[in-house]
């Protein structure tokens, strides 16, 4: 479907100045105006941890835009290729060990091409039984404005059908590389059976999207306490990142006891926080979360289903 947000005819023309949003892809709604949600077993704070498993090609096209984290040096950029690959060889093992020690279950966002290239990693992940989300074909297949609809449709279809083949999972969730969207991304992923996507950071609970076909919801996944945003984009210290996540957990837990279920969302990127000098900060964060009273560690689909079943 199209976006009903017509362009202005001049600097003082405001064609979308009306009640609600300036488009009709989802309803305007304040979080506190919604009925409180509850999570299983009387828990109040769901914990949704996404571990992206990514393939950054050595020869990226960077079209229509370049997703952060891609190669930056003249070909062959051994520096960034191998630093990213480090996550899939070494970092992932540290991250998984830290998660398991804290009894926190991850949801993996997987570039399909990575699972084609890395059968050993694929088997390691499949053996754990955790949920796998779609994460497009690679980190060089951005879903962004400028991508032709037919090209994007084929990309979505290929990424999801192959990932389903390789994993045997239904693949209900989606995370776009770099959280970019083209105008068509929500419709295209919904048409291929995606039920929730994590690209829009405008809410802290799932909410419904209007799409051409299928049934698509937005799931929260905060960018601002993600490891890449805090450590790479903002150059905050690891200590500060851990403080920020712990502060967020404490605030959301307190609020959840008064206002109903909340979700702490966290992205742990193996090529970044799997480094030996960073992993202890991940361990501190996960131990803090695990030590809180009322926490429900769950997969994306479990949280999504629990929320959707309560939202009329």
């Amino acid at each position: 479907m199209t976006w009903t947000t017509p362009a202005a005819s001049g600097p003082l023309d405001y064609p979308n100045r009306r009640y609600g949003n300036d488009h009709d892809r989802y309803e305007w709604s304040m979080l506190t105006d919604r009925a409180p949600l509850s999570w299983p077993d009387g828990k109040t704070l769901a914990v949704f941890v996404v571990v992206p498993l990514q393939f950054f090609p050595l020869n990226p096209k960077g079209e229509p835009i370049k997703v952060p984290g891609n190669m930056t040096m003249p070909y062959p950029d051994l520096r960034h290729y191998t630093l990213r690959d480090y996550g899939n060889r070494v970092g992932i093992h540290r991250v998984l060990k830290a998660l398991d020690a804290a009894h926190i279950r991850p949801t993996f966002a997987v570039n399909t091409r990575l699972f084609e290239r890395e059968p050993l990693l694929r088997q390691l992940i499949l053996d754990r039984g955790n949920e796998i989300m779609g994460h497009s074909w690679s980190m060089d297949t951005p879903h962004a404005g400028g991508l032709a609809e037919a090209v994007e449709r084929e990309l979505v279809q290929r990424s999801l059908s192959r990932l389903r083949e390789l994993t045997g999972q239904p693949v209900r969730g989606w995370l776009s590389p770099g959280k970019f969207n083209s105008p068509n991304t929500p419709d295209l992923i919904a048409a291929e059976g995606i039920e929730y996507f994590c690209d829009w950071v405008n809410d802290e609970l799932p909410y419904k999207w209007n799409v051409a076909s299928g049934d698509l919801w937005s799931m929260p996944l905060a960018t601002e306490i993600s490891d890449t945003y805090t450590l790479v984009d903002n150059l905050h210290s690891e200590e500060s990142w851990a403080d920020q996540v712990c502060d967020a957990a404490d605030l959301l837990l307190a609020e959840s006891r008064e206002q109903g279920g909340r979700i702490l969302t966290l992205t742990l990127t193996p090529w970044l926080v799997g480094q030996p000098h960073r992993i202890k900060h991940v361990e501190r964060v996960l131990a803090h979360i695990n030590g809180l009273d009322g926490v429900w560690s769950a997969s994306g689909s479990e949280i999504f289903d629990a929320a959707r079943n309560q939202i009329s």
Binding site: W3, P64, I65, A144, G145, G146, K179, F180, N181, S182, P183, D199, W200, V201, N202, T223
Partner: peptide, 9 residues
């Protein structure tokens, strides 16, 4: 970024 600029909006 091009429409829709998801992150900023």
């Amino acid at each position: 970024s091009p429409f829709p600029s998801v992150a900023g909006y």
